[in-house]
Simulated scan of single mutants.
Amino acid sequence: MTESGVRALWTMRILSAIALLCAGGIHFYLALNGVGGFLGVMFILNGVAGLVLAAGMLLLRGRLLQLVTVLSLLFLIATLGALVLALTVGLFGIHQTWDFTLVPQTVVIESIGIVILGITTAMVMRPQPVPGVRRHPTSA
Rank of each mutant, 00 (worst) to 15 (best):
M1H: 10
T2C: 11
S4D: 11
S4C: 00
R7Q: 13
A8T: 06
L9N: 10
M12D: 11
M12L: 15
R13I: 02
R13A: 13
R13T: 03
I14F: 10
S16A: 12
L21R: 10
C22D: 14
A23V: 05
A23L: 02
G24S: 02
I26V: 11
I26P: 01
I26Y: 06
F28I: 12
L30D: 11
L32C: 10
L32R: 09
N33K: 07
G34P: 00
V35D: 05
V35G: 07
G36S: 14
F38Q: 03
F38M: 01
L39T: 07
V41I: 09
M42W: 00
N46Q: 15
V48F: 14
V48T: 03
A49T: 14
V52Y: 01
V52H: 01
L53R: 07
L53H: 10
L53V: 05
A54T: 03
L58W: 04
L60I: 01
L60P: 00
L60T: 11
G62N: 06
L65K: 14
V68M: 08
V70P: 02
V70C: 10
L71E: 12
L73R: 12
L74P: 04
L74F: 07
L74Y: 06
F75G: 00
L76Y: 02
L76I: 06
L76R: 01
L76D: 04
I77G: 08
A78C: 08
T79I: 13
A82Y: 07
V84T: 07
A86S: 15
L87M: 05
L87I: 04
T88C: 07
L91M: 07
F92M: 14
G93S: 10
L102Q: 07
V103F: 11
V103E: 12
Q105G: 15
T106F: 08
V107Q: 10
E110F: 00
E110V: 00
S111R: 01
I112M: 13
I114R: 05
I116D: 06
G118M: 09
G118P: 02
G118N: 07
T120P: 01
T120D: 13
A122L: 08
R126T: 09
R126A: 09
Q128V: 13
P129D: 13
V130R: 14
P131S: 10
G132H: 08
G132S: 11
V133G: 01
R134N: 13
R135I: 06
S139D: 08
A140S: 01
A140L: 02
